[in-house]
Design a protein around this nucleic acid. Structure first.
Lengths: 296, 296
DNA sequence: CGCCTTCATTGCGTTACACGCAACACAATA
DNA sequence: TATTGTGTTGCGTGTAACGCAATGAAGGCG
Protein backbone atom coordinates (compact mmCIF):
# COMPACT_ATOMS: atom_id res chain seq x y z
CA UNK A 1 0.00 0.00 0.00
CA UNK A 2 1.47 3.27 -1.11
CA UNK A 3 1.12 6.68 0.49
CA UNK A 4 0.02 8.14 -2.82
CA UNK A 5 -2.72 5.52 -3.00
CA UNK A 6 -3.85 6.37 0.52
CA UNK A 7 -3.95 10.03 -0.39
CA UNK A 8 -6.08 9.27 -3.44
CA UNK A 9 -8.33 7.05 -1.38
CA UNK A 10 -8.82 9.76 1.23
CA UNK A 11 -9.69 12.32 -1.40
CA UNK A 12 -12.34 10.05 -2.83
CA UNK A 13 -13.60 9.16 0.62
CA UNK A 14 -14.17 12.83 1.30
CA UNK A 15 -15.55 13.91 -2.05
CA UNK A 16 -17.50 10.70 -2.68
CA UNK A 17 -17.30 11.42 -6.37
CA UNK A 18 -14.92 9.78 -8.82
CA UNK A 19 -14.87 12.61 -11.30
CA UNK A 20 -14.14 15.38 -8.84
CA UNK A 21 -11.72 13.25 -6.85
CA UNK A 22 -9.74 12.35 -9.94
CA UNK A 23 -9.55 16.02 -10.82
CA UNK A 24 -8.44 16.89 -7.30
CA UNK A 25 -5.67 14.30 -7.56
CA UNK A 26 -4.55 15.39 -11.03
CA UNK A 27 -5.48 11.98 -12.28
CA UNK A 28 -7.58 10.61 -15.09
CA UNK A 29 -10.87 9.02 -14.01
CA UNK A 30 -9.70 5.66 -15.23
CA UNK A 31 -6.54 5.84 -13.16
CA UNK A 32 -8.59 6.64 -10.08
CA UNK A 33 -10.96 3.74 -10.70
CA UNK A 34 -8.05 1.36 -11.13
CA UNK A 35 -6.25 2.64 -8.07
CA UNK A 36 -9.31 1.96 -5.94
CA UNK A 37 -9.79 -1.42 -7.60
CA UNK A 38 -6.20 -2.35 -6.80
CA UNK A 39 -6.67 -1.41 -3.17
CA UNK A 40 -9.86 -3.41 -2.97
CA UNK A 41 -8.10 -6.42 -4.42
CA UNK A 42 -5.29 -6.14 -1.91
CA UNK A 43 -7.77 -6.00 0.96
CA UNK A 44 -10.06 -8.54 -0.70
CA UNK A 45 -12.86 -6.28 0.34
CA UNK A 46 -14.83 -3.48 -1.34
CA UNK A 47 -13.95 -0.05 -0.01
CA UNK A 48 -16.71 1.88 -1.68
CA UNK A 49 -20.28 0.87 -2.45
CA UNK A 50 -21.20 2.34 -5.78
CA UNK A 51 -24.21 2.50 -7.97
CA UNK A 52 -24.58 4.78 -10.92
CA UNK A 53 -25.79 7.56 -8.69
CA UNK A 54 -23.82 7.64 -5.46
CA UNK A 55 -20.59 6.52 -3.86
CA UNK A 56 -20.48 5.59 -0.19
CA UNK A 57 -17.83 4.10 2.06
CA UNK A 58 -18.12 0.46 3.06
CA UNK A 59 -17.30 -0.53 6.66
CA UNK A 60 -13.89 -1.65 5.45
CA UNK A 61 -13.51 1.72 3.78
CA UNK A 62 -14.21 3.46 7.07
CA UNK A 63 -11.44 1.48 8.71
CA UNK A 64 -9.04 2.22 5.93
CA UNK A 65 -9.91 5.89 6.15
CA UNK A 66 -8.72 5.98 9.74
CA UNK A 67 -5.58 4.11 8.77
CA UNK A 68 -4.88 6.40 5.84
CA UNK A 69 -5.25 9.49 7.97
CA UNK A 70 -2.89 8.06 10.56
CA UNK A 71 -0.24 7.14 8.02
CA UNK A 72 -0.37 10.44 6.17
CA UNK A 73 -0.27 12.53 9.31
CA UNK A 74 2.60 10.56 10.74
CA UNK A 75 4.39 10.86 7.44
CA UNK A 76 4.07 14.62 7.49
CA UNK A 77 5.34 14.77 11.01
CA UNK A 78 8.19 12.43 10.11
CA UNK A 79 9.25 14.62 7.24
CA UNK A 80 9.20 17.80 9.24
CA UNK A 81 10.93 16.21 12.18
CA UNK A 82 13.65 14.92 9.90
CA UNK A 83 14.07 18.33 8.37
CA UNK A 84 14.25 19.98 11.76
CA UNK A 85 16.60 17.36 13.02
CA UNK A 86 18.83 18.00 10.08
CA UNK A 87 18.99 21.65 10.97
CA UNK A 88 18.68 21.90 14.74
CA UNK A 89 20.25 18.83 16.22
CA UNK A 90 22.96 18.62 13.61
CA UNK A 91 26.16 18.55 15.62
CA UNK A 92 29.73 18.54 14.48
CA UNK A 93 32.80 17.82 16.55
CA UNK A 94 36.13 18.89 15.14
CA UNK A 95 39.53 17.88 16.32
CA UNK A 96 42.55 19.99 15.50
CA UNK A 97 45.95 20.96 16.73
CA UNK A 98 46.32 24.34 18.36
CA UNK A 99 48.19 25.52 15.31
CA UNK A 100 45.36 24.50 13.07
CA UNK A 101 42.82 26.17 15.30
CA UNK A 102 44.67 29.43 14.92
CA UNK A 103 45.64 29.21 11.29
CA UNK A 104 43.50 26.99 9.10
CA UNK A 105 40.25 26.75 10.94
CA UNK A 106 39.17 30.33 11.68
CA UNK A 107 38.03 31.23 8.19
CA UNK A 108 36.47 27.80 7.61
CA UNK A 109 34.60 27.91 10.89
CA UNK A 110 33.46 31.42 10.23
CA UNK A 111 31.88 30.71 6.87
CA UNK A 112 30.42 27.44 8.14
CA UNK A 113 28.85 29.21 11.08
CA UNK A 114 27.47 31.80 8.72
CA UNK A 115 25.93 29.31 6.36
CA UNK A 116 24.77 26.75 8.93
CA UNK A 117 24.22 28.70 12.13
CA UNK A 118 22.06 25.93 13.53
CA UNK A 119 24.76 23.31 13.78
CA UNK A 120 26.20 22.82 17.23
CA UNK A 121 29.95 22.99 16.88
CA UNK A 122 32.34 21.33 19.24
CA UNK A 123 36.02 22.01 18.88
CA UNK A 124 38.67 19.94 20.56
CA UNK A 125 42.37 20.55 20.46
CA UNK A 126 45.04 17.94 20.85
CA UNK A 127 48.11 16.44 19.33
CA UNK A 128 47.99 16.49 15.54
CA UNK A 129 49.26 12.93 15.53
CA UNK A 130 46.15 11.60 17.16
CA UNK A 131 43.73 13.21 14.75
CA UNK A 132 43.27 10.22 12.52
CA UNK A 133 42.91 7.87 15.46
CA UNK A 134 40.22 10.09 16.95
CA UNK A 135 38.31 9.96 13.70
CA UNK A 136 38.70 6.23 13.31
CA UNK A 137 37.45 5.55 16.80
CA UNK A 138 34.37 7.63 16.13
CA UNK A 139 35.24 9.87 19.05
CA UNK A 140 35.21 12.83 16.75
CA UNK A 141 33.40 13.66 13.51
CA UNK A 142 36.04 15.60 11.68
CA UNK A 143 39.68 16.41 12.17
CA UNK A 144 42.31 18.65 10.73
CA UNK A 145 45.15 16.28 10.09
CA UNK A 146 48.26 15.73 8.08
CA UNK A 147 48.06 13.25 5.29
CA UNK A 148 49.46 9.92 6.32
CA UNK A 149 51.60 8.52 3.55
CA UNK A 150 49.44 5.56 2.77
CA UNK A 151 45.71 5.77 2.35
CA UNK A 152 43.66 4.51 5.28
CA UNK A 153 40.62 2.29 4.89
CA UNK A 154 37.24 3.97 5.24
CA UNK A 155 38.92 7.29 5.90
CA UNK A 156 38.61 10.24 3.59
CA UNK A 157 41.07 13.13 3.25
CA UNK A 158 40.60 16.53 1.74
CA UNK A 159 43.86 18.43 1.29
CA UNK A 160 43.70 22.12 2.05
CA UNK A 161 47.23 23.45 2.28
CA UNK A 162 50.70 22.21 1.57
CA UNK A 163 53.20 23.15 4.21
CA UNK A 164 56.94 22.76 3.78
CA UNK A 165 58.98 21.10 6.43
CA UNK A 166 61.81 23.43 7.33
CA UNK A 167 64.98 23.13 9.30
CA UNK A 168 65.54 25.68 12.03
CA UNK A 169 68.59 26.62 14.04
CA UNK A 170 69.12 28.88 17.02
CA UNK A 171 69.76 32.50 16.17
CA UNK A 172 72.90 32.36 18.22
CA UNK A 173 74.94 29.18 18.04
CA UNK A 174 74.85 27.27 21.29
CA UNK A 175 76.45 23.83 21.43
CA UNK A 176 79.29 22.76 19.16
CA UNK A 177 78.52 21.97 15.55
CA UNK A 178 75.25 23.83 15.65
CA UNK A 179 75.19 25.58 12.31
CA UNK A 180 74.62 29.24 11.95
CA UNK A 181 72.49 30.79 9.24
CA UNK A 182 74.14 30.59 5.89
CA UNK A 183 76.01 27.38 6.62
CA UNK A 184 75.27 24.37 4.56
CA UNK A 185 73.38 21.90 6.76
CA UNK A 186 75.28 18.63 7.17
CA UNK A 187 72.85 16.17 8.65
CA UNK A 188 75.51 13.68 9.52
CA UNK A 189 77.22 16.12 11.84
CA UNK A 190 74.67 18.64 13.06
CA UNK A 191 73.02 17.85 16.40
CA UNK A 192 69.31 17.22 15.79
CA UNK A 193 66.23 17.91 17.87
CA UNK A 194 63.53 15.60 16.51
CA UNK A 195 60.07 14.42 17.38
CA UNK A 196 60.00 10.88 18.67
CA UNK A 197 57.36 9.86 16.16
CA UNK A 198 55.12 11.49 13.67
CA UNK A 199 55.05 12.35 10.06
CA UNK A 200 57.95 14.79 10.00
CA UNK A 201 60.11 12.22 11.78
CA UNK A 202 59.19 9.60 9.22
CA UNK A 203 59.93 11.98 6.37
CA UNK A 204 63.34 12.72 7.77
CA UNK A 205 64.09 9.06 8.48
CA UNK A 206 63.20 8.25 4.91
CA UNK A 207 65.47 10.95 3.55
CA UNK A 208 68.33 9.80 5.77
CA UNK A 209 67.81 6.22 4.67
CA UNK A 210 67.83 7.18 1.02
CA UNK A 211 71.07 9.10 1.49
CA UNK A 212 72.58 6.50 3.83
CA UNK A 213 73.33 9.00 6.50
CA UNK A 214 73.46 8.29 10.20
CA UNK A 215 72.11 11.27 12.10
CA UNK A 216 73.42 12.86 15.26
CA UNK A 217 70.29 13.00 17.37
CA UNK A 218 70.66 15.13 20.42
CA UNK A 219 67.19 14.92 21.85
CA UNK A 220 63.83 13.48 20.98
CA UNK A 221 60.80 15.36 22.11
CA UNK A 222 57.12 15.33 21.35
CA UNK A 223 55.31 18.20 19.83
CA UNK A 224 56.45 20.77 17.32
CA UNK A 225 56.30 23.57 19.86
CA UNK A 226 58.70 21.65 22.06
CA UNK A 227 61.13 21.40 19.18
CA UNK A 228 61.12 25.13 18.65
CA UNK A 229 61.71 25.68 22.32
CA UNK A 230 64.66 23.28 22.36
CA UNK A 231 66.18 24.79 19.26
CA UNK A 232 65.84 28.25 20.68
CA UNK A 233 67.86 27.11 23.65
CA UNK A 234 70.64 26.13 21.30
CA UNK A 235 70.26 22.37 21.61
CA UNK A 236 70.61 21.79 17.89
CA UNK A 237 68.82 21.84 14.59
CA UNK A 238 65.12 21.13 14.50
CA UNK A 239 62.57 20.31 11.87
CA UNK A 240 59.08 21.75 11.97
CA UNK A 241 56.26 22.58 9.61
CA UNK A 242 56.57 26.13 8.40
CA UNK A 243 53.11 27.03 9.62
CA UNK A 244 53.94 26.02 13.17
CA UNK A 245 57.01 28.22 13.15
CA UNK A 246 55.10 31.19 11.82
CA UNK A 247 52.63 30.94 14.66
CA UNK A 248 55.25 30.40 17.33
CA UNK A 249 56.03 33.19 19.78
CA UNK A 250 59.69 32.17 19.39
CA UNK A 251 59.72 32.61 15.66
CA UNK A 252 62.14 35.48 15.83
CA UNK A 253 64.53 33.65 18.09
CA UNK A 254 65.34 30.87 15.64
CA UNK A 255 66.43 31.03 12.04
CA UNK A 256 65.44 29.02 9.03
CA UNK A 257 68.25 27.13 7.33
CA UNK A 258 67.82 27.78 3.62
CA UNK A 259 70.57 25.51 2.36
CA UNK A 260 69.10 22.31 3.73
CA UNK A 261 67.61 19.09 2.38
CA UNK A 262 64.15 19.48 0.95
CA UNK A 263 61.75 17.06 2.54
CA UNK A 264 58.49 16.07 0.99
CA UNK A 265 56.06 18.72 2.25
CA UNK A 266 53.27 18.26 4.71
CA UNK A 267 49.77 17.91 3.27
CA UNK A 268 47.28 19.23 5.76
CA UNK A 269 43.58 18.97 5.34
CA UNK A 270 40.32 17.60 6.61
CA UNK A 271 39.93 14.01 7.67
CA UNK A 272 36.79 12.02 8.42
CA UNK A 273 35.39 8.55 8.10
CA UNK A 274 33.36 7.50 5.12
CA UNK A 275 30.47 6.88 7.41
CA UNK A 276 30.54 10.34 8.92
CA UNK A 277 30.80 11.88 5.51
CA UNK A 278 27.23 10.78 4.92
CA UNK A 279 25.96 12.91 7.78
CA UNK A 280 24.51 16.23 6.74
CA UNK A 281 26.59 18.43 9.03
CA UNK A 282 29.86 16.70 8.20
CA UNK A 283 29.08 16.72 4.50
CA UNK A 284 28.28 20.41 4.65
CA UNK A 285 31.58 21.25 6.28
CA UNK A 286 33.41 19.07 3.81
CA UNK A 287 31.80 20.65 0.79
CA UNK A 288 32.46 24.09 2.16
CA UNK A 289 36.13 23.27 2.44
CA UNK A 290 36.10 21.83 -1.07
CA UNK A 291 34.60 25.01 -2.46
CA UNK A 292 37.20 27.14 -0.73
CA UNK A 293 40.10 25.03 -1.94
CA UNK A 294 38.62 25.11 -5.43
CA UNK A 295 38.45 28.87 -5.35
CA UNK A 296 42.02 29.16 -4.08
CA UNK B 1 6.30 5.43 0.42
CA UNK B 2 5.14 1.87 0.01
CA UNK B 3 4.46 -0.73 2.69
CA UNK B 4 6.71 -3.17 0.89
CA UNK B 5 9.51 -0.61 0.98
CA UNK B 6 8.97 -0.04 4.68
CA UNK B 7 9.11 -3.78 5.27
CA UNK B 8 12.37 -4.00 3.36
CA UNK B 9 13.75 -1.03 5.24
CA UNK B 10 12.83 -2.57 8.58
CA UNK B 11 14.50 -5.84 7.68
CA UNK B 12 17.70 -4.06 6.80
CA UNK B 13 17.45 -1.89 9.91
CA UNK B 14 17.33 -5.03 12.01
CA UNK B 15 19.89 -7.16 10.20
CA UNK B 16 22.22 -4.28 9.37
CA UNK B 17 23.50 -6.30 6.45
CA UNK B 18 22.54 -5.79 2.83
CA UNK B 19 23.27 -9.33 1.75
CA UNK B 20 21.31 -11.07 4.46
CA UNK B 21 18.49 -8.53 4.32
CA UNK B 22 18.11 -8.95 0.57
CA UNK B 23 17.95 -12.70 1.06
CA UNK B 24 15.38 -12.32 3.82
CA UNK B 25 13.25 -10.18 1.51
CA UNK B 26 13.58 -12.51 -1.49
CA UNK B 27 15.28 -9.72 -3.34
CA UNK B 28 18.49 -9.33 -5.27
CA UNK B 29 21.16 -7.25 -3.51
CA UNK B 30 20.98 -4.63 -6.20
CA UNK B 31 17.24 -4.26 -5.79
CA UNK B 32 17.68 -3.77 -2.07
CA UNK B 33 20.36 -1.15 -2.57
CA UNK B 34 18.19 0.74 -4.99
CA UNK B 35 15.14 0.51 -2.80
CA UNK B 36 17.03 2.12 0.05
CA UNK B 37 18.49 4.71 -2.30
CA UNK B 38 15.02 5.61 -3.51
CA UNK B 39 13.79 6.06 0.02
CA UNK B 40 16.77 8.23 0.86
CA UNK B 41 16.08 10.37 -2.16
CA UNK B 42 12.46 10.79 -1.20
CA UNK B 43 13.46 11.88 2.29
CA UNK B 44 16.45 13.83 1.00
CA UNK B 45 18.34 12.31 3.86
CA UNK B 46 20.54 9.25 4.28
CA UNK B 47 18.89 6.46 6.25
CA UNK B 48 21.92 4.24 6.71
CA UNK B 49 25.55 5.17 7.27
CA UNK B 50 27.66 2.63 5.44
CA UNK B 51 31.29 1.89 5.04
CA UNK B 52 32.67 -1.28 3.58
CA UNK B 53 32.48 -2.97 6.92
CA UNK B 54 29.33 -2.00 8.76
CA UNK B 55 25.87 -0.59 8.25
CA UNK B 56 24.30 1.60 10.91
CA UNK B 57 21.14 3.64 11.11
CA UNK B 58 21.31 7.40 10.76
CA UNK B 59 19.16 9.57 13.04
CA UNK B 60 16.68 9.94 10.19
CA UNK B 61 16.75 6.16 9.85
CA UNK B 62 15.82 5.78 13.50
CA UNK B 63 12.82 8.01 12.99
CA UNK B 64 11.76 6.13 9.92
CA UNK B 65 12.11 2.87 11.78
CA UNK B 66 9.54 4.00 14.31
CA UNK B 67 7.27 5.13 11.51
CA UNK B 68 7.67 1.90 9.59
CA UNK B 69 6.84 -0.18 12.63
CA UNK B 70 3.76 1.90 13.30
CA UNK B 71 2.51 1.63 9.73
CA UNK B 72 3.12 -2.10 9.43
CA UNK B 73 1.56 -2.93 12.77
CA UNK B 74 -1.48 -0.83 12.05
CA UNK B 75 -1.73 -2.42 8.65
CA UNK B 76 -1.77 -5.88 10.17
CA UNK B 77 -4.40 -4.87 12.64
CA UNK B 78 -6.42 -3.27 9.87
CA UNK B 79 -6.35 -6.42 7.81
CA UNK B 80 -7.38 -8.66 10.65
CA UNK B 81 -10.07 -6.28 11.84
CA UNK B 82 -11.47 -6.12 8.34
CA UNK B 83 -11.49 -9.90 8.11
CA UNK B 84 -13.20 -10.22 11.45
CA UNK B 85 -15.66 -7.54 10.60
CA UNK B 86 -16.52 -9.35 7.44
CA UNK B 87 -17.39 -12.46 9.43
CA UNK B 88 -18.71 -11.29 12.79
CA UNK B 89 -20.52 -8.05 12.32
CA UNK B 90 -21.93 -8.92 8.95
CA UNK B 91 -25.63 -8.36 9.20
CA UNK B 92 -28.37 -9.09 6.72
CA UNK B 93 -31.95 -7.93 6.77
CA UNK B 94 -34.42 -9.76 4.58
CA UNK B 95 -37.89 -8.69 3.64
CA UNK B 96 -40.43 -11.22 2.44
CA UNK B 97 -44.10 -11.94 2.30
CA UNK B 98 -45.49 -14.43 4.73
CA UNK B 99 -45.94 -16.89 1.90
CA UNK B 100 -42.29 -16.56 0.98
CA UNK B 101 -41.20 -16.98 4.57
CA UNK B 102 -43.00 -20.29 4.68
CA UNK B 103 -42.22 -21.58 1.24
CA UNK B 104 -39.13 -20.20 -0.44
CA UNK B 105 -37.02 -18.95 2.40
CA UNK B 106 -36.72 -21.86 4.85
CA UNK B 107 -34.24 -23.93 2.88
CA UNK B 108 -32.27 -20.86 1.78
CA UNK B 109 -32.04 -19.53 5.31
CA UNK B 110 -31.07 -22.89 6.64
CA UNK B 111 -28.12 -23.41 4.35
CA UNK B 112 -27.07 -19.80 4.73
CA UNK B 113 -27.10 -20.13 8.48
CA UNK B 114 -25.09 -23.30 8.18
CA UNK B 115 -22.42 -21.78 5.98
CA UNK B 116 -22.28 -18.33 7.58
CA UNK B 117 -23.38 -18.83 11.17
CA UNK B 118 -21.80 -15.55 12.19
CA UNK B 119 -24.08 -13.29 10.18
CA UNK B 120 -26.83 -11.63 12.15
CA UNK B 121 -30.04 -12.28 10.30
CA UNK B 122 -33.06 -10.07 10.51
CA UNK B 123 -36.26 -11.17 8.86
CA UNK B 124 -39.19 -8.86 8.24
CA UNK B 125 -42.48 -9.79 6.75
CA UNK B 126 -44.78 -7.51 4.86
CA UNK B 127 -46.73 -6.99 1.70
CA UNK B 128 -44.97 -8.50 -1.31
CA UNK B 129 -45.77 -5.36 -3.26
CA UNK B 130 -43.56 -3.23 -1.07
CA UNK B 131 -40.50 -5.41 -1.32
CA UNK B 132 -38.80 -3.47 -4.08
CA UNK B 133 -39.58 -0.16 -2.42
CA UNK B 134 -38.03 -1.38 0.81
CA UNK B 135 -34.87 -2.32 -1.02
CA UNK B 136 -34.70 0.91 -2.94
CA UNK B 137 -35.07 3.00 0.16
CA UNK B 138 -32.20 1.11 1.77
CA UNK B 139 -34.51 0.12 4.62
CA UNK B 140 -33.74 -3.50 3.91
CA UNK B 141 -30.77 -5.34 2.42
CA UNK B 142 -32.50 -8.06 0.52
CA UNK B 143 -36.05 -8.96 -0.37
CA UNK B 144 -37.98 -11.82 -1.83
CA UNK B 145 -40.01 -10.17 -4.53
CA UNK B 146 -41.82 -10.74 -7.75
CA UNK B 147 -40.18 -9.51 -10.89
CA UNK B 148 -41.58 -6.23 -11.99
CA UNK B 149 -42.07 -6.22 -15.74
CA UNK B 150 -39.56 -3.55 -16.53
CA UNK B 151 -36.06 -3.61 -15.09
CA UNK B 152 -35.45 -1.13 -12.30
CA UNK B 153 -32.39 1.06 -12.10
CA UNK B 154 -29.69 0.01 -9.66
CA UNK B 155 -31.75 -2.95 -8.62
CA UNK B 156 -30.73 -6.53 -9.22
CA UNK B 157 -33.03 -9.53 -9.48
CA UNK B 158 -32.27 -13.19 -9.17
CA UNK B 159 -35.17 -15.42 -10.25
CA UNK B 160 -35.73 -18.49 -8.13
CA UNK B 161 -39.09 -19.96 -8.98
CA UNK B 162 -41.72 -19.45 -11.63
CA UNK B 163 -45.22 -19.49 -10.26
CA UNK B 164 -48.32 -19.66 -12.46
CA UNK B 165 -51.15 -17.28 -11.88
CA UNK B 166 -54.31 -19.30 -11.55
CA UNK B 167 -57.98 -18.53 -11.54
CA UNK B 168 -59.96 -19.83 -8.62
CA UNK B 169 -63.65 -20.16 -8.04
CA UNK B 170 -65.72 -21.08 -4.99
CA UNK B 171 -66.31 -24.76 -4.56
CA UNK B 172 -70.02 -24.06 -4.39
CA UNK B 173 -71.34 -21.39 -6.70
CA UNK B 174 -72.56 -18.36 -4.81
CA UNK B 175 -73.60 -15.28 -6.78
CA UNK B 176 -74.97 -15.37 -10.29
CA UNK B 177 -72.62 -16.06 -13.14
CA UNK B 178 -69.97 -17.50 -10.84
CA UNK B 179 -68.65 -20.40 -12.80
CA UNK B 180 -68.38 -23.85 -11.43
CA UNK B 181 -65.47 -26.20 -12.01
CA UNK B 182 -65.42 -27.51 -15.55
CA UNK B 183 -67.01 -24.42 -17.04
CA UNK B 184 -65.11 -22.41 -19.53
CA UNK B 185 -64.14 -19.14 -17.88
CA UNK B 186 -65.60 -16.15 -19.69
CA UNK B 187 -63.86 -13.09 -18.35
CA UNK B 188 -66.35 -10.70 -19.85
CA UNK B 189 -69.16 -12.16 -17.81
CA UNK B 190 -67.73 -13.77 -14.70
CA UNK B 191 -67.68 -11.56 -11.59
CA UNK B 192 -64.07 -10.93 -10.63
CA UNK B 193 -62.34 -10.46 -7.28
CA UNK B 194 -59.07 -8.67 -8.04
CA UNK B 195 -56.28 -6.93 -6.22
CA UNK B 196 -56.42 -3.17 -6.54
CA UNK B 197 -52.85 -2.98 -7.74
CA UNK B 198 -49.94 -5.28 -8.09
CA UNK B 199 -48.36 -7.51 -10.62
CA UNK B 200 -51.15 -10.02 -11.02
CA UNK B 201 -53.61 -7.18 -11.59
CA UNK B 202 -51.34 -5.69 -14.25
CA UNK B 203 -50.98 -9.07 -15.92
CA UNK B 204 -54.69 -9.50 -16.09
CA UNK B 205 -55.29 -5.94 -17.30
CA UNK B 206 -52.78 -6.54 -20.05
CA UNK B 207 -54.49 -9.73 -21.11
CA UNK B 208 -57.89 -8.05 -21.12
CA UNK B 209 -56.54 -5.16 -23.15
CA UNK B 210 -55.03 -7.49 -25.70
CA UNK B 211 -58.30 -9.33 -26.03
CA UNK B 212 -60.39 -6.15 -25.88
CA UNK B 213 -62.56 -7.45 -23.10
CA UNK B 214 -64.27 -5.33 -20.46
CA UNK B 215 -64.26 -7.21 -17.18
CA UNK B 216 -66.99 -7.49 -14.61
CA UNK B 217 -65.19 -6.54 -11.45
CA UNK B 218 -67.13 -7.33 -8.32
CA UNK B 219 -64.66 -6.25 -5.70
CA UNK B 220 -61.13 -4.96 -5.42
CA UNK B 221 -59.14 -5.99 -2.41
CA UNK B 222 -55.54 -5.94 -1.36
CA UNK B 223 -53.56 -9.03 -0.60
CA UNK B 224 -53.74 -12.47 -2.13
CA UNK B 225 -55.03 -14.01 1.07
CA UNK B 226 -57.93 -11.60 0.96
CA UNK B 227 -58.75 -12.71 -2.56
CA UNK B 228 -58.91 -16.32 -1.52
CA UNK B 229 -61.15 -15.42 1.38
CA UNK B 230 -63.52 -13.48 -0.88
CA UNK B 231 -63.65 -16.20 -3.49
CA UNK B 232 -64.37 -18.75 -0.81
CA UNK B 233 -67.34 -16.70 0.20
CA UNK B 234 -68.62 -17.00 -3.36
CA UNK B 235 -68.05 -13.40 -4.40
CA UNK B 236 -66.63 -14.37 -7.72
CA UNK B 237 -63.58 -15.58 -9.58
CA UNK B 238 -60.17 -14.65 -8.21
CA UNK B 239 -56.65 -14.71 -9.50
CA UNK B 240 -53.76 -15.68 -7.26
CA UNK B 241 -50.27 -17.14 -7.52
CA UNK B 242 -50.37 -20.89 -7.26
CA UNK B 243 -47.97 -20.93 -4.36
CA UNK B 244 -50.19 -18.67 -2.29
CA UNK B 245 -53.12 -20.95 -2.85
CA UNK B 246 -51.14 -24.04 -1.87
CA UNK B 247 -50.22 -22.47 1.43
CA UNK B 248 -53.69 -21.16 2.17
CA UNK B 249 -55.82 -22.81 4.89
CA UNK B 250 -58.77 -22.34 2.50
CA UNK B 251 -57.12 -24.22 -0.33
CA UNK B 252 -59.71 -26.99 -0.17
CA UNK B 253 -62.63 -24.61 -0.16
CA UNK B 254 -61.95 -23.14 -3.58
CA UNK B 255 -61.32 -24.79 -6.93
CA UNK B 256 -58.85 -24.06 -9.68
CA UNK B 257 -60.39 -23.27 -13.05
CA UNK B 258 -58.42 -25.28 -15.57
CA UNK B 259 -60.07 -23.96 -18.71
CA UNK B 260 -59.05 -20.36 -18.20
CA UNK B 261 -56.77 -17.80 -19.87
CA UNK B 262 -53.07 -18.43 -19.29
CA UNK B 263 -51.41 -15.38 -17.85
CA UNK B 264 -47.70 -14.77 -18.01
CA UNK B 265 -46.44 -16.48 -14.86
CA UNK B 266 -45.04 -14.83 -11.77
CA UNK B 267 -41.25 -14.74 -11.48
CA UNK B 268 -40.28 -14.73 -7.83
CA UNK B 269 -36.76 -14.31 -6.63
CA UNK B 270 -34.29 -12.24 -4.68
CA UNK B 271 -34.03 -8.54 -5.04
CA UNK B 272 -31.41 -6.13 -3.81
CA UNK B 273 -29.70 -2.91 -4.78
CA UNK B 274 -26.46 -2.88 -6.73
CA UNK B 275 -24.82 -1.17 -3.83
CA UNK B 276 -25.87 -3.78 -1.31
CA UNK B 277 -24.76 -6.52 -3.60
CA UNK B 278 -21.21 -5.40 -2.95
CA UNK B 279 -21.50 -6.15 0.75
CA UNK B 280 -20.09 -9.47 1.80
CA UNK B 281 -23.14 -10.82 3.61
CA UNK B 282 -25.54 -9.86 0.84
CA UNK B 283 -23.22 -11.22 -1.80
CA UNK B 284 -22.92 -14.48 0.10
CA UNK B 285 -26.68 -14.93 0.31
CA UNK B 286 -27.02 -14.04 -3.35
CA UNK B 287 -24.39 -16.51 -4.48
CA UNK B 288 -25.91 -19.20 -2.31
CA UNK B 289 -29.24 -18.69 -4.03
CA UNK B 290 -27.54 -18.72 -7.41
CA UNK B 291 -25.90 -22.05 -6.64
CA UNK B 292 -29.20 -23.56 -5.57
CA UNK B 293 -31.07 -22.37 -8.62
CA UNK B 294 -28.22 -23.66 -10.78
CA UNK B 295 -28.47 -27.06 -9.20
CA UNK B 296 -32.24 -27.14 -9.60
C1' DC C 1 52.99 -9.42 -0.78
C1' DG C 2 49.54 -11.34 -3.74
C1' DC C 3 45.39 -13.93 -4.11
C1' DC C 4 40.82 -14.84 -2.71
C1' DT C 5 36.55 -13.78 -0.32
C1' DT C 6 33.00 -10.72 1.20
C1' DC C 7 30.06 -6.68 0.52
C1' DA C 8 27.81 -2.98 -1.37
C1' DT C 9 27.15 -0.58 -5.59
C1' DT C 10 26.63 0.38 -10.65
C1' DG C 11 25.65 -0.62 -15.86
C1' DC C 12 22.47 -2.66 -18.64
C1' DG C 13 18.74 -5.20 -20.81
C1' DT C 14 14.04 -6.88 -19.70
C1' DT C 15 9.60 -6.87 -17.90
C1' DA C 16 5.63 -5.37 -15.28
C1' DC C 17 2.63 -1.99 -14.20
C1' DA C 18 0.42 2.48 -13.80
C1' DC C 19 -1.15 6.00 -16.72
C1' DG C 20 -4.00 8.54 -20.38
C1' DC C 21 -7.08 8.32 -24.21
C1' DA C 22 -11.06 6.68 -26.18
C1' DA C 23 -15.06 3.84 -26.12
C1' DC C 24 -18.62 1.89 -23.38
C1' DA C 25 -22.58 0.91 -20.02
C1' DC C 26 -26.01 2.66 -17.38
C1' DA C 27 -29.16 5.88 -15.50
C1' DA C 28 -31.16 10.45 -15.05
C1' DT C 29 -33.05 14.44 -17.47
C1' DA C 30 -35.07 17.36 -20.92
C1' DT D 1 -35.82 9.89 -27.85
C1' DA D 2 -31.63 12.43 -27.48
C1' DT D 3 -28.42 14.25 -24.25
C1' DT D 4 -25.80 14.62 -20.19
C1' DG D 5 -23.49 12.82 -16.18
C1' DT D 6 -20.90 9.09 -14.10
C1' DG D 7 -18.08 5.15 -13.42
C1' DT D 8 -15.72 1.33 -15.88
C1' DT D 9 -13.10 -1.22 -19.51
C1' DG D 10 -9.84 -1.95 -23.81
C1' DC D 11 -5.66 -0.74 -25.38
C1' DG D 12 -1.19 1.33 -26.49
C1' DT D 13 2.73 3.65 -24.15
C1' DG D 14 6.38 5.06 -21.07
C1' DT D 15 8.45 4.78 -16.73
C1' DA D 16 10.50 2.35 -13.25
C1' DA D 17 11.71 -1.72 -10.60
C1' DC D 18 13.96 -6.00 -11.13
C1' DG D 19 17.80 -9.58 -11.96
C1' DC D 20 22.27 -10.55 -13.86
C1' DA D 21 26.87 -9.49 -14.35
C1' DA D 22 30.76 -6.51 -13.52
C1' DT D 23 33.10 -3.21 -10.44
C1' DG D 24 35.35 -1.23 -6.43
C1' DA D 25 36.93 -1.52 -1.89
C1' DA D 26 38.51 -3.83 2.30
C1' DG D 27 39.71 -7.91 5.16
C1' DG D 28 41.75 -12.57 5.67
C1' DC D 29 45.29 -15.84 4.78
C1' DG D 30 49.12 -18.51 3.17
Amino acid sequence: MDLRELEIFLTLAELKHFGRASQACNLSPSALTRTIQRMEEKLEQPLFLRDNRTVTLSPAGERLKAYARLCLNEWQSLRSSIRNEQAVTGSLSIYASITAVYSLLPELLESFRERYPEVQLELRTGAAEQAVAQVQSGEIDLAVAAFPDGTRPNIEFLPIVTIPLIFIAPRVAGAAEVPVPGDRLDLSRAPLVLPQTGLSRRRLDQWLKEHRITPNITSEVSGNEAIIAMVRLGCGVGIVPQLVLERSPFRDEVVVLQDAPVLKPYQVGLCTSKRNLQRASVKAFWQLAEERSMAA
